[in-house]
């Protein structure tokens, strides 16, 4: 009788000349299971609050105190949404928020793209210095300049120019102490035009990296054909970097749409969604809102969902750009 042989070679257990076990296959199978377990676990962490938020937004009081109800309410109702829609003045607030976020992010996109291109393609004197200032503007805490900016927008006189201008006859109608720009969209629009709004340093950085990674040959061809720098930029460079533009626009739109920090400071009475949401439970419940945490929470959840719903829809449409952009543009240089 032949002796039974068993040995391991190339990751296989071989008994009597036959491969019985393939360790590599087992290993990759275990790896796959582990990977899915981890991914699903993390997805659960991300999605769970969303699910709870949504389910409790369609709950009623009885469901909350019913211990058998965890996620799916027994008496679902849209009542919280009706309240939230009415007291947030949703259509008006939505339109105002949209106008603000859209115009600000469009302006930021234009200015940051131009600036990013300048940094990426032209070796002008002081390039490194100005780019260091871009990073500086990103690093300083907004609180540091918030107060002076607040005062400047409250008494906006073009940094001392206006009193001088007012002496000239055509401008004599200008108020000498300056305009009050608070309570309007101007404190957001003006910095956006000049690429110095909230986190604009990040957008400049992203656009610069994108243009640096793009091939120069197309632009050189355009120059040879007689196009000037601006024509080249708009006709040749921009169409080639659509993915990057979408990502920057999406970032900037989302941050402006959700922003409560600056809007509550510059425009506290504005009918914008984050501000209306912050006051929602107080408006719905009147003076009682502190003593009725359940009702407040229910209606707040509905309101929060109404705030992020448009973003979720936009993300659903643009996620292809978002997820793929990394591969196409090479955000990193």
């Amino acid at each position: 009788m032949a002796k039974a042989t068993a040995y391991i070679s190339y990751g296989r257990l071989i008994v009597n000349g036959k491969s019985v076990l393939n360790f590599r296959k087992i290993g990759s199978f275990v790896g796959m299971v582990l990977r899915y377990l981890i991914l699903i676990g993390i997805s659960y962490v991300i999605l769970y609050p969303l699910i709870v938020k949504f389910s409790s937004s369609i709950m009623t009081r009885t469901d909350i105190w019913d211990p058998s109800v965890l996620i799916i309410p027994k008496y679902p109702s849209w009542n919280n949404y009706k309240l939230a829609l009415r007291f947030m003045e949703y259509p008006i607030a939505f339109w105002n928020s949209f106008k603000l976020a859209f115009s600000v992010s469009l302006l930021q996109l234009i200015s940051c793209t131009l600036v990013g291109y300048g940094f990426a393609r032209y070796r002008f004197f002081g390039n490194g210095f100005w780019f260091a200032l871009v990073i500086f503007s990103l690093v300083i805490p907004p609180e540091l300049i918030l107060i002076p900016l607040y005062l400047n927008f409250r008494f906006f006189d073009l940094y001392g120019l206006m009193p001088l201008l007012a002496k000239i006859s055509i401008f004599s109608k200008l108020p000498a102490e300056g305009f009050n720009l608070l309570g309007s969209a101007w404190p957001f629009i003006l910095p956006a035009i000049f690429a110095s709004g909230f986190r604009n340093g990040l957008y400049i950085y992203i656009m610069r990296q994108i243009f640096k990674g793009a091939p120069r040959e197309l632009e050189e061809a355009a120059y040879v054909d007689g196009a000037g720098p601006f024509r080249t930029f708009f006709r040749v460079v921009l169409p080639g970097s659509v993915y990057g533009l979408v990502v920057v626009f999406l970032f900037s739109f989302v941050w402006m749409w959700n922003d409560f920090n600056l809007t509550s400071f510059y425009w506290p009475k504005g009918k914008l969604l984050p501000i209306m949401l912050n006051d929602l439970s107080r408006n719905v419940l009147g003076d009682q809102y502190l003593h009725a945490p359940v009702e407040a929470s229910l209606v707040n959840n509905a309101g929060s969902f109404l705030l992020i719903l448009p973003l979720l829809l936009i993300y659903a449409f643009l996620q292809r750009y978002f997820v793929e952009s990394i591969e196409r543009t090479g955000l990193v240089g």
Binding site: V115, V134, I140
Partner: peptide, 16 residues
């Protein structure tokens, strides 16, 4: 170069 980064130069001086 300076024409392209002009928005930032102005913005930095005024708003930062």
């Amino acid at each position: 170069g300076y024409i392209f980064i002009l928005p930032f130069v102005i913005g930095f001086i005024l708003f930062v």
